[in-house]
Amino acid sequence: MNENTPGDAREMLDLIDGQQRRVSRDYRIPVVWLYTVWAVAWLVGFLALYLAQLGVFEPVAGGVVFGVLIAGSIVASAVIGSRIGRGVRGDSQFAGAVYGVSWTVCSVAFALLGIGMIAQGLAGDFAGLYFPSAYALMCGTLYLAGAALWHDRLQLVLGLALLAVGAVAPFLGLGPNLLLMAVAGGAIFGAGAIVTLRTLGTASPRR
């Protein structure tokens, strides 16, 4: 269409839909990557810990694989996350910044709680039950916050699923709890990636 020639109503409506789909897609592609990165980190990382628990790997090797994957995912999340809202500012910018920082602050707080309990004599087996569940509960809670902030039903469902996994895992005992984290974590974040990918063609508002 000529840039300055009025088209017919259908053409203009399609133009609006097409452009808003393009914008929406641009915001959601990084979200697909975020979910994918964490699906892989949970699946492979917790599987490595589980296999180490079974004696297939040295415990140190399992821990290193897990640590590298989590650290890599945190760095990737920071880079990808910074691209989601780039070039846009406003009221949502403050909410986004607080939400982003909450992940770091909560991670440190939950880690300190665990380390504090170990320092007070918490046995290694119990620490192995605490840390995976603490992080699943933390992720679940923050996803619920994300759902409330951005009216995102997908985050609501994922948050509830993570809370359920974190709450149930200790009942399975050390070892099976890690396998549950690997399978359920991979499935939950993977589902997030797939559902977001399937909505790329729609022109609904951001997030």
Binding site: E3, L15, I16, Q19, Q20, V23, R89, G90
Partner: peptide, 21 residues
């Protein structure tokens, strides 16, 4: 006009009170 319509449609995706660079 196509170009201005696309500009307006894009800015309309920014929540109220927000702006785009």
């Amino acid at each position: 006009a196509a170009a201005r319509l696309k500009i307006t449609a894009t800015l309309a995706t920014v929540p109220d009170g927000g702006s785009m660079s």
